[in-house]
Design a protein around this nucleic acid. Structure first.
Length: 283
DNA sequence: ACCTAAACCTGGGCGC
DNA sequence: TGCGCCCAGGTTTAGG
């Protein structure tokens, strides 16, 4: 779930089903995932559901917040009379590590196969002191996602790109530079802009920077439109999969024909991450 | 300042 | 069916 469109999709679902609801009990099955004291949140109600980059912040009505990062395989799924999907019916599972019992016989489950994610209990006023918050770059979709902090303007994007010798793709995925862009959308944005992911950021010409800026916003909006990308384990707050993977341009398509010219998509590794591109369309 | 590899984990897919 | 290997929407840390 991991990138901006997936986390924002979860946020919207949680906002719909959790706001005003009471936490009656918390069961932590895997201690590593949960940091804090469950006493601080038991009995409180959800007040506001926010997203900062790829992290979620669930504000409660008692001065505490739950900060959550799902990393690669985390899932936050609501189960209650508003949602009796097959997926929810089967919860909790062996991958359920935290169970929030809510009022009206409902539950919020945190599942995570790889166990990389975390849930932290914080005082609401302390949230902005956390690294995931204060080190975060500007948001590409402020105004369309009702979350985040400062907006990634074109001028700000130019400033971020200028004089950086690092690969443009690695830079796009740096959360300190830009919030929310991960591997799928970085690959697809570079394809849409016709830019080779291996190029040094500072080598981009003015018109290429503008194209890339628009491409980032475009692919993130598509991701949101299709409810995120369910390549693997991602589901939304109701346990439903997204469909962006059916529309992905180059991500995960090694050897398959380029959607524009038919040349086989190439695979290289940049910054330790799988990188997909068309050597014919991207320069 | 910058780049890489490894670490945190489990499971799925592939070749043999 | 099983084994070994490589892959995975992220981030952090250690080392060069």
């Amino acid at each position: 779930m991991p990138e901006l469109p997936e986390v924002e999709t979860i946020r919207r679902g949680l906002e719909k089903y959790l706001v005003g609801r009471k936490i009656e009990n918390v069961e932590v099955r895997l201690a590593r995932i949960f940091q804090g004291d469950i006493k601080d949140i038991t009995g409180a109600k959800f007040k506001d559901i926010k997203r900062f980059g790829k992290a979620l912040v669930l504000d409660l009505n008692n001065g505490y917040s739950l900060a959550i990062h799902v990393k690669m395989t985390g899932q936050l799924v609501y189960k209650g009379k508003e949602n009796s999907s097959e997926f929810a019916k089967q919860l909790p599972s062996k991958f359920t590590h935290v169970i929030f019992t809510l009022d009206r016989g409902a539950f919020l489950f945190y599942n995570d196969i790889r166990q990389f994610g975390w849930i932290k209990v914080l005082k609401t006023q302390e949230v902005q002191k956390q690294n995931f918050f204060k080190d975060l770059g500007p948001e590409p979709l402020v105004g369309q996602t009702s979350s985040g902090q400062s907006n990634l303007t074109l001028d700000k994007f130019k400033e971020i790109i200028s004089n950086k010798s690092t690969n443009i793709k690695v830079l796009l995925m740096d959360q300190k530079k830009i919030a929310g862009v991960g591997n799928i959308y970085a690959n697809d944005a570079l394809f849409l802009a016709g830019i080779d992911p291996r190029r040094p950021a500072k080598s981009l010409a003015e018109d290429e920077i503008v194209k890339l800026y628009k491409a980032i916003i475009e692919v993130l909006k598509r991701g949101l439109k299709y409810g995120g990308s369910s390549e693997n384990t991602y589901v939304n707050a109701l346990g439903e999969t997204g469909s962006y993977q059916e529309y992905a341009l180059v991500y995960g398509k090694t050897g398959k024909p380029c959607p524009k010219c038919g040349t086989p998509i190439e695979f290289v590794r940049l910054g330790g991450r799988g990188t997909f591109f068309c050597s014919s369309c991207q320069h």
